[in-house]
C-alpha cells in the first residue's frame, strides 16, 4: 500500500484528490439543481420530489455518507495545500502583477472554498437538520426565504459557488492530465457555462420562492 500514500501524498496526488472530489461535487450540484427545479412545477411537485428522494432510504444515506467523505477529503487536502503554498514564498514581492494567467476564480479558490464550507453548514442547519414533523419542505423553504436576509445570503453564496466552479471545473481536467489543445477550449467553455448555470440556476430560486411562488 506504500504506493497509495506516496502517490496521493505527493503534490500532484493531492491535486488529483482535489480534482476528483471537486468533479464529483459538480455532479452533485447538477443533480441537486435538477431536483430543485421541480419547484417551478409548484409546491406539490417540489414536496413530491423531496418525498421520493427520502423514500430511497439506505441508498440516500449511502450517497450522503459518500458526499461527507468527499467533503472531508476536499476540505482537508485543500487546507493542506493552502498552508503549504502560503509557506512556499516566505518573502513576498513588493509589487505584484498578473501576467494574464490568474483569474478571479483561480486567485480566490481557498477563500471561496471556505465561504462555501460555511454556507453548506448554514444550509444544512436550515433545511436538513430541522424538525420536519407536521410540515412540508416547501413550507420550510418558503418560510426561510420570507426573510430577505436569507435571500441575500443564498444569492451571495451561489455567486461564490459559481466563481469557485469557474476555475475548479477546467482545472480538474488539467490536473488529472485530461488536457489537450484540441479539446481544452471545449472543457473551458463547458466549465464557464456550467458555473453560470449553477450561479443563475440556484441563485434565482430564492428570488422565485420569496417573490413569485
Amino acid at each position: 500500500m506504500n504506493w497509495v500514500t506516496s502517490t496521493f501524498g505527493s503534490s500532484i496526488g493531492k491535486k488529483v484528490l482535489m480534482a476528483v472530489t471537486g468533479l464529483a461535487f459538480c455532479g452533485f450540484l447538477a443533480a441537486h439543481l435538477a431536483g430543485n427545479l421541480t419547484i417551478y412545477g409548484g409546491k406539490d411537485a417540489f414536496n413530491a420530489y423531496a418525498e421520493k428522494l427520502h423514500a430511497l432510504g439506505p441508498v440516500l444515506t449511502a450517497a450522503e455518507l459518500g458526499l461527507l467523505l468527499f467533503a472531508l477529503i476536499h476540505i482537508l487536502t485543500g487546507l493542506t495545500l493552502f498552508y503549504q503554498n502560503f509557506k512556499s514564498r516566505p518573502v513576498r514581492y513588493k509589487v505584484n502583477k498578473r501576467a494574464g494567467g490568474r483569474t478571479l476564480g483561480s486567485g480566490t479558490m481557498p477563500y471561496t472554498g471556505l465561504l462555501l464550507l460555511c454556507f453548506v453548514v448554514f444550509h444544512l442547519l436550515n433545511f436538513s437538520f430541522v424538525d420536519k414533523t407536521g410540515t412540508t419542505i416547501f413550507a420550510i423553504v418558503s418560510k426561510a426565504f420570507a426573510n430577505p436576509l436569507y435571500v441575500l445570503v443564498y444569492i451571495f453564496a451561489m455567486i461564490v459557488a459559481a466563481v469557485h466552479v469557474s476555475h475548479g471545473f477546467w482545472s480538474a481536467f488539467q490536473t488529472i492530465g485530461a488536457s489537450h489543445p484540441k479539446y481544452m477550449p471545449l472543457v473551458k467553455g463547458i466549465g464557464l457555462v456550467f458555473s453560470l448555470i449553477i450561479g443563475i440556476g440556484f441563485g434565482f430560486l430564492p428570488i422565485y420562492i420569496s417573490f413569485i411562488a
Partner: peptide, 24 residues
C-alpha cells in the same frame, strides 16, 4: 516548492512560452 493550482501565470511569463499542457 509550492503546489500548482493551475493559475497559468508560469506559461504567461515563461520566456520560452512553454505550455501547461506539459504539466498535464
Amino acid at each position: 516548492f509550492g503546489n500548482c493550482t493551475n493559475e497559468r501565470e508560469c506559461e504567461a511569463e515563461c520566456p520560452k512560452e512553454i505550455s501547461i499542457t506539459h504539466i498535464a
